[in-house]
Design a protein around this nucleic acid. Structure first.
Lengths: 112, 112
DNA sequence: CAACTTAACTACCGATCGGTTGTATGGTTG
DNA sequence: CAACCATACAACCGATCGGTAGTTAAGTTG
């Protein structure tokens, strides 16, 4: 896809919004959890050890960034990842960070 | 690279930090600018229309996230992108956002 | 149907954090 | 010294996080 330069302001703002949505540990956890498949608010609340309201709020941020989607079934709301690229994104950043950690620990080992 | 589940807390925090570093329009602009090659603080200040202090501060955030690196030559400090993955990252998110925009405008065209 | 329970969403509050601007200071280089 | 950069601080503003509480919607029970 062609990338205009400089990027128009609204596009930059939208890009920043997407990154910001992934810039909170709890939301990373939510995405990590949803990678295994759909989950209800309740599932996430129990798995991540915080309040249901808090999860709801973070899910809304992720939904506004078009990262997750909702499906209603009865009294439950099922959330899932709708942006296929996010998985790739997380894995890539995770890989970079892990490599960083590996280099750090290697440096520490080499130092002593 | 293998991905442990659940991810250890410090790793999640570090991942979030990297995303957060890219969650600011001005920093996206800086990265966009650096994709064309090295630049001094002065270059960025003039190109992005803000203060030198502000640029310096944002560069530090990017440096702490291991996204950019410094090189000193004379009295100038040259910044460059050191995390090769960031280019990919930005292009991917940019692509997703552009696709989103395309779908939106298509929907608007179809509606009238 | 009425009463209750459960699941989820929303609104508000206080605290904290981040971004911007401005000023000032210190360090380094030529 | 002059130019360039980094850092620190204050002030202001807006955004965000977590919690409390209230609301809505769906399911369940009598």
């Amino acid at each position: 896809m062609a990338m205009p330069h400089p990027l128009p302001d609204p596009l930059v703002e939208r890009i920043a919004e997407r990154f910001r949505a992934l810039g909170e540990p709890l939301r990373i956890r939510i995405v990590e959890h949803l990678m295994a498949g759909e989950a209800t608010v309740q599932d996430l609340t129990q798995a991540l050890g915080t309040s249901q309201q808090n999860i709801s709020k973070h899910l809304r941020v992720l939904a506004n960034a078009s990262i997750v989607g909702r499906r209603r079934d009865g009294s439950f709301a099922y959330y899932r990842i709708v942006d296929a690229g996010v998985t790739q994104l997380c894995e890539q950043v995770c890989g970079t960070v892990q490599q960083e950690v590996a280099e750090l620990s290697a440096a520490i080992r080499g130092r002593r």
